[in-house]
Design a protein around this nucleic acid. Sequence first.
DNA 1: AAAATTATATTTGTATACATTTTTAGGTGC
DNA 2: GCACCTAAAAATGTATACAAATATAATTTT
Lengths: 214, 214
Amino acid sequence: MANKPLAQSLCEQFKQDILENKHPVGITLKQTELSQQYGVSRIPIRDVLHKLQAEGWLQQCGKRGVMVQALNATEALDLSLMRQYLEPLILTYALPNLTKAIIGKAEDLLLELDTDGLSVSQHGELNWQFHACLYQAANRPTLFNTIAGLHQKCARYIGYHNSQLNYNNTSQTEHYQLLEVVKAGDSVMAQAILKRHIAVASNILVAYLTENPV
Amino acid sequence: MANKPLAQSLCEQFKQDILENKHPVGITLKQTELSQQYGVSRIPIRDVLHKLQAEGWLQQCGKRGVMVQALNATEALDLSLMRQYLEPLILTYALPNLTKAIIGKAEDLLLELDTDGLSVSQHGELNWQFHACLYQAANRPTLFNTIAGLHQKCARYIGYHNSQLNYNNTSQTEHYQLLEVVKAGDSVMAQAILKRHIAVASNILVAYLTENPV
DNA sequence: AAAATTATATTTGTATACATTTTTAGGTGC
DNA sequence: GCACCTAAAAATGTATACAAATATAATTTT
Protein backbone atom coordinates (compact mmCIF):
# COMPACT_ATOMS: atom_id res chain seq x y z
CA MET A 1 0.00 0.00 0.00
CA ALA A 2 2.96 2.22 -0.82
CA ASN A 3 2.73 5.26 1.43
CA LYS A 4 4.41 8.23 -0.15
CA PRO A 5 7.23 9.70 1.82
CA LEU A 6 6.41 13.18 3.03
CA ALA A 7 9.15 14.78 0.95
CA GLN A 8 7.55 13.55 -2.25
CA SER A 9 4.16 15.14 -1.72
CA LEU A 10 5.95 18.23 -0.44
CA CYS A 11 7.83 18.40 -3.71
CA GLU A 12 4.66 18.38 -5.79
CA GLN A 13 3.07 20.94 -3.52
CA PHE A 14 6.10 23.15 -3.79
CA LYS A 15 6.19 22.99 -7.57
CA GLN A 16 2.53 23.90 -7.70
CA ASP A 17 3.20 26.84 -5.41
CA ILE A 18 5.99 28.01 -7.70
CA LEU A 19 3.69 27.74 -10.72
CA GLU A 20 1.15 29.84 -8.82
CA ASN A 21 3.83 32.41 -8.06
CA LYS A 22 3.69 31.97 -4.30
CA HIS A 23 7.48 32.21 -4.16
CA PRO A 24 8.20 35.15 -6.46
CA VAL A 25 11.50 35.44 -8.27
CA GLY A 26 13.92 37.57 -6.29
CA ILE A 27 12.84 36.43 -2.84
CA THR A 28 15.39 34.24 -1.08
CA LEU A 29 13.79 31.27 0.60
CA LYS A 30 15.28 29.89 3.82
CA GLN A 31 14.91 26.31 4.91
CA THR A 32 13.80 27.37 8.38
CA GLU A 33 11.06 29.67 7.08
CA LEU A 34 9.78 27.04 4.66
CA SER A 35 9.79 24.32 7.30
CA GLN A 36 7.51 26.46 9.49
CA GLN A 37 5.41 27.47 6.51
CA TYR A 38 4.83 23.86 5.41
CA GLY A 39 4.69 22.51 8.95
CA VAL A 40 7.50 19.98 8.71
CA SER A 41 11.10 19.80 9.85
CA ARG A 42 14.00 21.13 7.83
CA ILE A 43 15.17 17.73 6.54
CA PRO A 44 12.41 17.01 4.04
CA ILE A 45 12.41 20.68 3.02
CA ARG A 46 16.12 20.45 2.37
CA ASP A 47 15.57 17.33 0.26
CA VAL A 48 12.95 19.07 -1.83
CA LEU A 49 15.13 22.15 -2.35
CA HIS A 50 18.03 19.98 -3.49
CA LYS A 51 15.81 18.07 -5.88
CA LEU A 52 14.30 21.20 -7.37
CA GLN A 53 17.74 22.71 -7.77
CA ALA A 54 18.81 19.66 -9.73
CA GLU A 55 15.70 20.01 -11.87
CA GLY A 56 16.45 23.67 -12.52
CA TRP A 57 13.53 25.23 -10.67
CA LEU A 58 15.65 26.82 -7.95
CA GLN A 59 19.04 28.37 -7.67
CA GLN A 60 21.28 28.39 -4.63
CA CYS A 61 22.43 31.87 -3.59
CA GLY A 62 25.26 31.03 -1.21
CA LYS A 63 23.88 30.95 2.32
CA ARG A 64 21.44 33.68 1.58
CA GLY A 65 18.96 30.98 0.62
CA VAL A 66 17.53 29.66 -2.60
CA MET A 67 15.68 31.63 -5.23
CA VAL A 68 13.16 30.64 -7.87
CA GLN A 69 14.85 30.77 -11.27
CA ALA A 70 13.57 33.48 -13.55
CA LEU A 71 11.99 32.37 -16.79
CA ASN A 72 14.22 33.32 -19.68
CA ALA A 73 13.98 33.10 -23.43
CA THR A 74 17.24 31.26 -23.94
CA GLU A 75 16.30 28.43 -21.63
CA ALA A 76 12.85 28.20 -23.22
CA LEU A 77 14.47 27.92 -26.64
CA ASP A 78 17.01 25.34 -25.49
CA LEU A 79 14.34 23.16 -23.95
CA SER A 80 12.26 23.40 -27.07
CA LEU A 81 15.18 22.57 -29.35
CA MET A 82 16.07 19.50 -27.34
CA ARG A 83 12.48 18.36 -27.39
CA GLN A 84 12.32 18.91 -31.15
CA TYR A 85 15.21 16.51 -31.60
CA LEU A 86 14.42 13.90 -28.97
CA GLU A 87 10.66 13.53 -29.01
CA PRO A 88 10.37 12.62 -32.70
CA LEU A 89 13.15 10.12 -32.05
CA ILE A 90 11.37 8.34 -29.22
CA LEU A 91 8.07 8.50 -31.08
CA THR A 92 9.68 6.58 -33.94
CA TYR A 93 10.74 3.86 -31.53
CA ALA A 94 7.26 3.84 -30.03
CA LEU A 95 5.27 3.57 -33.27
CA PRO A 96 5.68 -0.17 -33.93
CA ASN A 97 4.69 -0.93 -30.33
CA LEU A 98 1.52 1.15 -30.16
CA THR A 99 -1.50 -0.94 -29.30
CA LYS A 100 -5.12 0.07 -29.69
CA ALA A 101 -5.30 0.37 -25.91
CA ILE A 102 -2.58 2.99 -25.91
CA ILE A 103 -4.15 4.93 -28.75
CA GLY A 104 -7.44 4.79 -26.91
CA LYS A 105 -5.90 6.12 -23.75
CA ALA A 106 -4.31 8.93 -25.71
CA GLU A 107 -7.68 9.85 -27.19
CA ASP A 108 -9.25 9.90 -23.73
CA LEU A 109 -6.53 12.26 -22.56
CA LEU A 110 -7.22 14.59 -25.48
CA LEU A 111 -10.89 14.65 -24.56
CA GLU A 112 -9.98 15.53 -21.00
CA LEU A 113 -7.78 18.31 -22.32
CA ASP A 114 -10.83 19.82 -23.99
CA THR A 115 -12.57 20.16 -20.66
CA ASP A 116 -13.27 23.71 -19.55
CA GLY A 117 -12.01 25.11 -16.29
CA LEU A 118 -8.77 23.18 -15.99
CA SER A 119 -6.16 24.81 -13.82
CA VAL A 120 -2.85 25.70 -15.40
CA SER A 121 -1.04 22.82 -13.78
CA GLN A 122 -3.83 20.34 -14.50
CA HIS A 123 -3.63 21.30 -18.14
CA GLY A 124 0.14 20.94 -18.19
CA GLU A 125 -0.07 17.57 -16.50
CA LEU A 126 -2.65 16.22 -18.96
CA ASN A 127 -0.63 17.53 -21.89
CA TRP A 128 2.42 15.64 -20.65
CA GLN A 129 0.35 12.53 -19.96
CA PHE A 130 -0.73 12.54 -23.59
CA HIS A 131 2.80 12.73 -24.91
CA ALA A 132 4.16 10.33 -22.27
CA CYS A 133 1.46 7.81 -23.00
CA LEU A 134 2.76 7.45 -26.55
CA TYR A 135 6.45 7.64 -25.64
CA GLN A 136 6.22 4.93 -22.97
CA ALA A 137 5.58 2.39 -25.67
CA ALA A 138 9.08 2.89 -27.00
CA ASN A 139 10.46 0.91 -24.05
CA ARG A 140 13.45 3.20 -23.79
CA PRO A 141 13.74 4.19 -20.14
CA THR A 142 16.82 6.37 -20.43
CA LEU A 143 15.56 8.30 -23.42
CA PHE A 144 12.15 8.58 -21.84
CA ASN A 145 13.44 9.83 -18.53
CA THR A 146 15.57 12.49 -20.15
CA ILE A 147 12.58 13.72 -22.10
CA ALA A 148 10.46 13.60 -18.96
CA GLY A 149 13.09 15.77 -17.27
CA LEU A 150 12.89 18.30 -20.08
CA HIS A 151 9.13 18.42 -19.66
CA GLN A 152 9.55 18.97 -15.96
CA LYS A 153 11.69 21.96 -16.71
CA CYS A 154 9.20 23.07 -19.36
CA ALA A 155 6.30 22.91 -16.95
CA ARG A 156 6.83 26.43 -15.68
CA TYR A 157 7.08 27.81 -19.18
CA ILE A 158 4.05 25.94 -20.42
CA GLY A 159 2.08 27.10 -17.41
CA TYR A 160 3.14 30.66 -18.10
CA HIS A 161 2.38 30.13 -21.76
CA ASN A 162 -1.16 28.95 -21.22
CA SER A 163 -2.00 31.56 -18.66
CA GLN A 164 -0.59 34.47 -20.67
CA LEU A 165 -1.23 33.41 -24.23
CA ASN A 166 -4.23 31.71 -25.67
CA TYR A 167 -2.69 28.75 -27.38
CA ASN A 168 -4.82 25.81 -26.32
CA ASN A 169 -6.97 25.52 -29.44
CA THR A 170 -4.08 25.41 -31.88
CA SER A 171 -2.28 22.92 -29.69
CA GLN A 172 -5.24 20.60 -29.51
CA THR A 173 -5.71 20.65 -33.29
CA GLU A 174 -2.10 19.55 -33.68
CA HIS A 175 -2.58 16.83 -31.08
CA TYR A 176 -5.44 15.33 -33.07
CA GLN A 177 -3.46 15.58 -36.31
CA LEU A 178 -0.59 13.78 -34.65
CA LEU A 179 -2.81 11.02 -33.39
CA GLU A 180 -4.23 10.50 -36.89
CA VAL A 181 -0.88 9.89 -38.58
CA VAL A 182 0.25 7.82 -35.59
CA LYS A 183 -2.79 5.60 -36.07
CA ALA A 184 -1.87 5.30 -39.74
CA GLY A 185 1.65 4.30 -38.69
CA ASP A 186 3.23 7.04 -40.80
CA SER A 187 6.53 7.56 -39.07
CA VAL A 188 7.86 10.34 -41.28
CA MET A 189 4.72 12.42 -41.00
CA ALA A 190 4.46 11.78 -37.28
CA GLN A 191 7.99 13.04 -36.75
CA ALA A 192 7.35 16.14 -38.83
CA ILE A 193 4.09 17.03 -37.12
CA LEU A 194 5.51 16.46 -33.66
CA LYS A 195 8.59 18.53 -34.36
CA ARG A 196 6.46 21.34 -35.71
CA HIS A 197 4.05 21.07 -32.79
CA ILE A 198 6.90 21.67 -30.39
CA ALA A 199 8.49 24.39 -32.51
CA VAL A 200 5.28 26.38 -32.97
CA ALA A 201 4.52 26.60 -29.28
CA SER A 202 8.12 27.50 -28.59
CA ASN A 203 8.24 30.29 -31.15
CA ILE A 204 5.26 32.05 -29.62
CA LEU A 205 6.66 31.66 -26.14
CA VAL A 206 10.20 32.73 -26.98
CA ALA A 207 8.98 35.76 -28.86
CA TYR A 208 6.81 36.75 -25.93
CA LEU A 209 9.56 36.23 -23.38
CA THR A 210 12.03 38.19 -25.46
CA GLU A 211 9.73 41.18 -25.59
CA ASN A 212 8.44 40.87 -22.03
CA PRO A 213 11.23 39.54 -19.83
CA VAL A 214 9.93 38.22 -16.54
CA MET B 1 37.53 30.34 0.22
CA ALA B 2 34.66 28.05 -0.59
CA ASN B 3 35.02 24.92 1.51
CA LYS B 4 33.28 22.02 -0.19
CA PRO B 5 30.47 20.47 1.76
CA LEU B 6 31.31 16.96 2.86
CA ALA B 7 28.54 15.44 0.77
CA GLN B 8 30.07 16.79 -2.43
CA SER B 9 33.47 15.17 -2.02
CA LEU B 10 31.72 12.04 -0.81
CA CYS B 11 29.77 12.00 -4.03
CA GLU B 12 32.89 12.09 -6.19
CA GLN B 13 34.53 9.46 -4.04
CA PHE B 14 31.49 7.25 -4.34
CA LYS B 15 31.33 7.57 -8.10
CA GLN B 16 34.99 6.67 -8.34
CA ASP B 17 34.36 3.63 -6.16
CA ILE B 18 31.53 2.56 -8.43
CA LEU B 19 33.77 2.93 -11.48
CA GLU B 20 36.33 0.76 -9.69
CA ASN B 21 33.66 -1.83 -8.97
CA LYS B 22 33.88 -1.52 -5.21
CA HIS B 23 30.11 -1.77 -4.99
CA PRO B 24 29.33 -4.62 -7.37
CA VAL B 25 26.00 -4.82 -9.12
CA GLY B 26 23.62 -7.05 -7.17
CA ILE B 27 24.77 -6.02 -3.70
CA THR B 28 22.24 -3.91 -1.82
CA LEU B 29 23.88 -1.00 -0.06
CA LYS B 30 22.44 0.24 3.23
CA GLN B 31 22.86 3.79 4.47
CA THR B 32 24.06 2.60 7.86
CA GLU B 33 26.77 0.37 6.41
CA LEU B 34 27.99 3.08 4.07
CA SER B 35 28.04 5.69 6.80
CA GLN B 36 30.36 3.49 8.86
CA GLN B 37 32.40 2.58 5.80
CA TYR B 38 32.95 6.21 4.82
CA GLY B 39 33.17 7.45 8.39
CA VAL B 40 30.35 9.98 8.33
CA SER B 41 26.78 10.12 9.53
CA ARG B 42 23.83 8.86 7.53
CA ILE B 43 22.64 12.30 6.39
CA PRO B 44 25.37 13.11 3.86
CA ILE B 45 25.32 9.49 2.70
CA ARG B 46 21.61 9.74 2.15
CA ASP B 47 22.12 12.93 0.14
CA VAL B 48 24.70 11.26 -2.07
CA LEU B 49 22.51 8.22 -2.66
CA HIS B 50 19.58 10.40 -3.66
CA LYS B 51 21.74 12.42 -6.02
CA LEU B 52 23.23 9.35 -7.66
CA GLN B 53 19.77 7.85 -8.06
CA ALA B 54 18.67 10.97 -9.88
CA GLU B 55 21.75 10.70 -12.09
CA GLY B 56 20.98 7.08 -12.85
CA TRP B 57 23.93 5.44 -11.11
CA LEU B 58 21.88 3.77 -8.42
CA GLN B 59 18.48 2.20 -8.12
CA GLN B 60 16.29 2.07 -5.04
CA CYS B 61 15.18 -1.45 -4.09
CA GLY B 62 12.39 -0.71 -1.67
CA LYS B 63 13.78 -0.80 1.84
CA ARG B 64 16.25 -3.47 0.94
CA GLY B 65 18.70 -0.69 0.09
CA VAL B 66 20.08 0.73 -3.13
CA MET B 67 21.89 -1.13 -5.87
CA VAL B 68 24.35 -0.04 -8.52
CA GLN B 69 22.60 -0.02 -11.90
CA ALA B 70 23.81 -2.64 -14.30
CA LEU B 71 25.31 -1.43 -17.54
CA ASN B 72 23.01 -2.26 -20.39
CA ALA B 73 23.15 -1.90 -24.15
CA THR B 74 19.86 -0.05 -24.51
CA GLU B 75 20.87 2.69 -22.13
CA ALA B 76 24.28 3.00 -23.79
CA LEU B 77 22.56 3.39 -27.14
CA ASP B 78 20.05 5.93 -25.84
CA LEU B 79 22.77 8.05 -24.29
CA SER B 80 24.76 7.91 -27.48
CA LEU B 81 21.78 8.83 -29.65
CA MET B 82 20.95 11.81 -27.52
CA ARG B 83 24.55 12.97 -27.63
CA GLN B 84 24.60 12.54 -31.41
CA TYR B 85 21.70 14.96 -31.72
CA LEU B 86 22.55 17.47 -29.02
CA GLU B 87 26.32 17.85 -29.15
CA PRO B 88 26.50 18.88 -32.82
CA LEU B 89 23.75 21.36 -32.01
CA ILE B 90 25.60 23.05 -29.18
CA LEU B 91 28.85 22.96 -31.14
CA THR B 92 27.17 24.96 -33.88
CA TYR B 93 26.16 27.60 -31.36
CA ALA B 94 29.69 27.58 -29.96
CA LEU B 95 31.59 27.95 -33.24
CA PRO B 96 31.16 31.70 -33.77
CA ASN B 97 32.25 32.36 -30.17
CA LEU B 98 35.41 30.28 -30.15
CA THR B 99 38.47 32.35 -29.31
CA LYS B 100 42.09 31.36 -29.82
CA ALA B 101 42.37 30.95 -26.06
CA ILE B 102 39.64 28.33 -26.07
CA ILE B 103 41.12 26.47 -29.03
CA GLY B 104 44.49 26.57 -27.27
CA LYS B 105 43.02 25.12 -24.11
CA ALA B 106 41.37 22.37 -26.14
CA GLU B 107 44.71 21.51 -27.72
CA ASP B 108 46.36 21.35 -24.32
CA LEU B 109 43.69 18.94 -23.16
CA LEU B 110 44.28 16.69 -26.18
CA LEU B 111 47.98 16.61 -25.36
CA GLU B 112 47.17 15.61 -21.80
CA LEU B 113 44.92 12.88 -23.15
CA ASP B 114 47.94 11.43 -24.95
CA THR B 115 49.76 10.98 -21.66
CA ASP B 116 50.49 7.40 -20.71
CA GLY B 117 49.33 5.88 -17.47
CA LEU B 118 46.08 7.78 -17.02
CA SER B 119 43.52 6.10 -14.83
CA VAL B 120 40.16 5.25 -16.32
CA SER B 121 38.42 8.10 -14.53
CA GLN B 122 41.19 10.58 -15.27
CA HIS B 123 40.89 9.73 -18.93
CA GLY B 124 37.13 10.09 -18.87
CA GLU B 125 37.38 13.41 -17.07
CA LEU B 126 39.88 14.84 -19.57
CA ASN B 127 37.78 13.64 -22.46
CA TRP B 128 34.78 15.48 -21.10
CA GLN B 129 36.87 18.57 -20.35
CA PHE B 130 37.84 18.67 -24.02
CA HIS B 131 34.28 18.53 -25.24
CA ALA B 132 32.99 20.83 -22.51
CA CYS B 133 35.67 23.38 -23.22
CA LEU B 134 34.26 23.85 -26.72
CA TYR B 135 30.61 23.64 -25.72
CA GLN B 136 30.91 26.26 -22.97
CA ALA B 137 31.49 28.90 -25.61
CA ALA B 138 27.95 28.42 -26.84
CA ASN B 139 26.64 30.30 -23.80
CA ARG B 140 23.68 28.00 -23.53
CA PRO B 141 23.48 26.89 -19.91
CA THR B 142 20.40 24.71 -20.18
CA LEU B 143 21.57 22.89 -23.27
CA PHE B 144 25.03 22.55 -21.80
CA ASN B 145 23.82 21.20 -18.48
CA THR B 146 21.63 18.60 -20.13
CA ILE B 147 24.59 17.43 -22.20
CA ALA B 148 26.77 17.44 -19.11
CA GLY B 149 24.20 15.24 -17.44
CA LEU B 150 24.31 12.79 -20.33
CA HIS B 151 28.09 12.65 -20.00
CA GLN B 152 27.75 11.98 -16.29
CA LYS B 153 25.59 9.01 -17.11
CA CYS B 154 28.02 8.00 -19.85
CA ALA B 155 30.98 8.07 -17.48
CA ARG B 156 30.50 4.51 -16.34
CA TYR B 157 30.14 3.23 -19.89
CA ILE B 158 33.14 5.18 -21.13
CA GLY B 159 35.22 3.91 -18.24
CA TYR B 160 34.12 0.39 -19.02
CA HIS B 161 34.78 1.04 -22.68
CA ASN B 162 38.32 2.22 -22.19
CA SER B 163 39.23 -0.48 -19.75
CA GLN B 164 37.79 -3.34 -21.81
CA LEU B 165 38.32 -2.18 -25.36
CA ASN B 166 41.27 -0.41 -26.83
CA TYR B 167 39.68 2.57 -28.41
CA ASN B 168 41.84 5.50 -27.31
CA ASN B 169 43.92 5.90 -30.45
CA THR B 170 40.97 6.10 -32.82
CA SER B 171 39.22 8.48 -30.50
CA GLN B 172 42.19 10.83 -30.34
CA THR B 173 42.55 10.91 -34.12
CA GLU B 174 38.95 12.01 -34.37
CA HIS B 175 39.49 14.64 -31.70
CA TYR B 176 42.30 16.19 -33.72
CA GLN B 177 40.22 16.07 -36.92
CA LEU B 178 37.40 17.80 -35.12
CA LEU B 179 39.66 20.53 -33.83
CA GLU B 180 40.97 21.17 -37.33
CA VAL B 181 37.58 21.83 -38.91
CA VAL B 182 36.53 23.79 -35.85
CA LYS B 183 39.56 26.04 -36.33
CA ALA B 184 38.54 26.45 -39.97
CA GLY B 185 35.07 27.41 -38.79
CA ASP B 186 33.41 24.75 -40.93
CA SER B 187 30.18 24.16 -39.12
CA VAL B 188 28.78 21.46 -41.39
CA MET B 189 31.94 19.36 -41.28
CA ALA B 190 32.29 19.89 -37.54
CA GLN B 191 28.77 18.61 -36.95
CA ALA B 192 29.35 15.59 -39.15
CA ILE B 193 32.66 14.62 -37.55
CA LEU B 194 31.33 15.08 -34.03
CA LYS B 195 28.23 13.03 -34.72
CA ARG B 196 30.33 10.28 -36.23
CA HIS B 197 32.82 10.46 -33.37
CA ILE B 198 30.04 9.77 -30.90
CA ALA B 199 28.40 7.12 -33.08
CA VAL B 200 31.58 5.14 -33.68
CA ALA B 201 32.44 4.81 -30.01
CA SER B 202 28.87 3.89 -29.26
CA ASN B 203 28.68 1.19 -31.92
CA ILE B 204 31.69 -0.62 -30.52
CA LEU B 205 30.38 -0.37 -26.98
CA VAL B 206 26.81 -1.40 -27.77
CA ALA B 207 27.98 -4.37 -29.79
CA TYR B 208 30.24 -5.46 -26.95
CA LEU B 209 27.55 -5.03 -24.31
CA THR B 210 25.03 -6.91 -26.40
CA GLU B 211 27.35 -9.90 -26.68
CA ASN B 212 28.71 -9.72 -23.15
CA PRO B 213 25.98 -8.46 -20.83
CA VAL B 214 27.36 -7.23 -17.52
C1' DA C 1 5.68 -30.36 3.50
C1' DA C 2 3.91 -25.98 1.76
C1' DA C 3 1.43 -21.86 2.52
C1' DA C 4 -0.13 -18.38 5.35
C1' DT C 5 0.43 -15.58 9.47
C1' DT C 6 2.55 -13.34 13.07
C1' DA C 7 6.42 -11.29 15.39
C1' DT C 8 10.99 -9.55 15.28
C1' DA C 9 14.64 -7.18 13.21
C1' DT C 10 16.20 -4.03 9.85
C1' DT C 11 15.99 0.03 7.05
C1' DT C 12 14.65 4.33 5.59
C1' DG C 13 12.23 8.80 6.60
C1' DT C 14 11.76 12.60 9.87
C1' DA C 15 12.63 15.49 13.96
C1' DT C 16 15.69 17.75 17.01
C1' DA C 17 20.31 19.40 18.36
C1' DC C 18 24.91 20.95 17.27
C1' DA C 19 28.98 22.74 14.33
C1' DT C 20 30.63 25.40 10.71
C1' DT C 21 30.45 28.85 7.56
C1' DT C 22 28.89 33.07 5.63
C1' DT C 23 26.43 37.10 5.69
C1' DT C 24 25.35 41.43 7.62
C1' DA C 25 25.54 45.16 10.60
C1' DG C 26 28.26 48.10 13.38
C1' DG C 27 32.19 50.54 14.44
C1' DT C 28 36.79 52.44 13.56
C1' DG C 29 40.35 54.72 10.96
C1' DC C 30 41.67 57.43 7.17
C1' DG D 1 31.99 59.96 3.46
C1' DC D 2 34.11 55.60 2.07
C1' DA D 3 36.76 51.55 2.89
C1' DC D 4 38.20 48.21 5.91
C1' DC D 5 37.99 45.44 9.79
C1' DT D 6 35.51 43.08 13.65
C1' DA D 7 31.77 40.78 15.97
C1' DA D 8 27.16 39.10 16.26
C1' DA D 9 23.46 36.94 13.82
C1' DA D 10 21.67 33.81 10.68
C1' DA D 11 22.02 30.34 7.33
C1' DT D 12 23.24 25.69 5.80
C1' DG D 13 25.65 21.20 6.66
C1' DT D 14 26.15 17.35 9.82
C1' DA D 15 25.33 14.30 13.80
C1' DT D 16 22.31 11.91 16.86
C1' DA D 17 17.68 10.26 18.24
C1' DC D 18 13.14 8.69 17.17
C1' DA D 19 9.04 6.96 14.22
C1' DA D 20 7.10 4.48 10.53
C1' DA D 21 7.32 1.17 7.23
C1' DT D 22 9.05 -3.02 5.23
C1' DA D 23 11.54 -7.20 4.83
C1' DT D 24 12.93 -11.40 7.05
C1' DA D 25 12.51 -15.24 10.01
C1' DA D 26 9.90 -18.15 12.93
C1' DT D 27 5.64 -20.30 13.88
C1' DT D 28 1.40 -22.08 13.06
C1' DT D 29 -2.06 -24.11 10.23
C1' DT D 30 -3.85 -26.80 6.56
